[in-house]
Every structure is written in C-alpha cells, then in structure tokens.
Amino acid sequence: MINFWGYSISETRSINYDKNDKAMTEYIAATVPSSKLCIGCGGCTAGCTAGNLTDFNIRKVQMLMKRGETKDAKEQLQKCMLCGKCMLVCPRGVETRKMILEMLNFIKTNQKLED
C-alpha cells in the first residue's frame, strides 16, 4: 500500500510475472519434477484434512508458487499436517507431499541465508 495524502493506492492485483522472483519455482521444478504435471483439478484441496478446517488451499499455494507469488506460501504451508491424502487422490501422480516438504525446505534455507 502506498500512502498518498491520506488516500491509499493498492498495489496492482495482477501477477507481475516479469518482476516476480522465480527461484522457488525453479527449485521445486527441479527437485519435484512431478509437480509440473498439475492440471489444477483441485482433488487435493477438496479432501485436504487441513483445508477442511482452514483456508489452506494446496492447489492455490503451488499454482501461485509457479508464478513466483511466494509471499504467503510460508504462512499457508505451516498449516499442512503432511497426512498425504492429497497425494492419494491426485490423478496426475504429483508427489504433493514431497512438494510441500521441499517448499518448506526452500523457505527455511532462504531464511537462513537472509538472516
């Protein structure tokens, strides 16, 4: 938000693909190749044990991640219980559980680097 004499102008609501940092996108594509297979059917999210109780949406988190939108990923992924149900329904055989673990790994390593 940019404060402009008492008025605030929202940052653009669109995905700025040119500007977004795609380091995590590349990391996940390399470490979890099956993540590329997602067709966004939402099966994972529909049955999600954590998604049943919160706004956690694993399909959305990984879709946003693929566009370089990783700001909320950390907070969202903390909600996952790693039960693996998503993996069991995925019609594309995406290793969703591994993908989540690797995203968490990436966030943790990068945070260490920043600190």
Partner: peptide, 29 residues
C-alpha cells in the same frame, strides 16, 4: 463446476456428501 471429486460419504438419508474444490472460485465445496 470445474473440480475433481475427491471423496464421497453417505448420510443417514442415503444422500451423498461430496467434497470437490470449486477451482474457479478457489474454495473447497
């Protein structure tokens, strides 16, 4: 509705309670 059925359960009235994600809305349904 664009979303793949994940699982279905049955209630006492023998109706089906389904779980899908309404992917175009971005919320489980």
């Amino acid at each position: 509705i664009r979303g793949r059925l994940s699982e279905a359960a049955e209630n006492m009235q023998k109706q089906l309670q389904i779980k899908v994600e309404d992917t175009l809305v971005g919320k489980p349904l």
